[in-house]
Amino acid sequence: MAIDLSPEQWPLIMGILNVTPDSFSDGGHFNQPSAAIERVRRMIEEGADMIDIGGESTRPGAPAVSQEDELARVIPVIEAIRRDSPIPISVDTSKPAVMRAAVAAGASLINDVRALQEPGAPEAAAELGVPICLMHMQGQPRTMQANPHYEDVVEEVLAFLLQRIEACQGVGITPDKVILDPGFGFGKTAGHNLTLFRELGRFVETGYPVLVGVSRKSLIGKLLGERPVEERLAGSLALATLAGWLGAAILRVHDVRETADALAMCRAVQQA
């Protein structure tokens, strides 16, 4: 099912479904198709507009996953969900072979934390013709939080994303297929993340849909006195509401019902 990215629908809620053993929040919970389907059904009931499925953890320090393992994790789950529901599916991957197999299985958006920088990825995305989310990441997951440094984090992240848009256009990906993600938590300190969030409007002003993913992240834990993952709901909702108010198009979240309620209040005020 195609994803409607028209501004009238913003912000859309992207429910997170990690089919990995080691994701920072829900690793190992939904590895089997039956468990994944039940989770997806619940997220749909709670108000999810789309589901983002990932088979490789990109938490800080996460090891690389082979193409074969990622395919084995992701494709059966996408196929099972597609048989069960028409909900739009996003695949969280950087590998061209996984992109192709996922779209063939029923995915309709590619969410790439490496912004199509892997060999063959731009060409695969262009060939598939589905929307692509380009994310900024300084370094790689295994080392990205070792010592992130920027002279001007907003300008540098924005410049990188604009360069990747240009690269996409060079292989035939049209502007209407591009989504931008500043990459909160990916090679950035808490200070960098806060500055990017405060200046989110700079990214919205590009005219491209902006995806924000901060749900349950370490930024929230640090700001609230080292709160564990399971105690970061209020912080996640506060940032989701702020992102929606600032013009984000897509919010990638774990807690769908609570986020939908928070956004409903935000919309009510905006429309009053």
Rank of each mutant, 00 (worst) to 15 (best):
A126S: 04
A2F: 12
V103A: 08
D22I: 00
K95Y: 02
A107L: 06
S90T: 01
C168Y: 00
Q9F: 05
R202H: 10
D26L: 10
I78P: 07
G207Y: 11
D152T: 08
G244H: 04
S6E: 14
L162A: 15
K177G: 08
V204D: 02
L109I: 11
A260L: 07
I51Y: 00
E118K: 12
R227S: 00
L116K: 09
M135N: 01
N111Y: 04
G28V: 09
E151M: 08
D84T: 14
P96E: 13
I37W: 03
V229D: 11
P76Q: 14
K188I: 03
E118Q: 15
F186E: 05
M144N: 08
V210P: 03
I75S: 07
L12Q: 01
G120T: 01
L200C: 05
R39Y: 07
V229I: 14
I220R: 02
A121H: 03
Y208G: 05
M99Y: 02
W10H: 10
C266S: 13
R73C: 11
P11F: 09
V98K: 05
A72I: 11
K217A: 10
P60M: 11
P141C: 14
E156Y: 10
V130A: 01
V91T: 01
E166H: 12
G207H: 01
L180C: 07
N31D: 09
P88F: 02
E118I: 09
E45L: 15
L194D: 05
N193K: 00
A125W: 08
V157A: 02
G244V: 13
K217R: 13
A167H: 14
Y208N: 08
L224P: 08
A104G: 13
P11V: 14
H136E: 11
Q169H: 15
L71K: 10
G225P: 04
E79Q: 14
H254Y: 11
R73A: 04
R42M: 15
A36D: 03
G213N: 02
V153Q: 00
P76A: 13
Q140T: 11
R41Y: 15
V65T: 14
F184W: 06
L251D: 07
I3K: 00
M135Y: 03
I250V: 15
I220Q: 04
V214E: 04
R198N: 09
K177C: 06
A36V: 14
L200V: 01
G187N: 07
R83L: 12
G27H: 07
N147V: 08
R83S: 11
A80Q: 11
P182S: 05
A234G: 14
T93M: 12
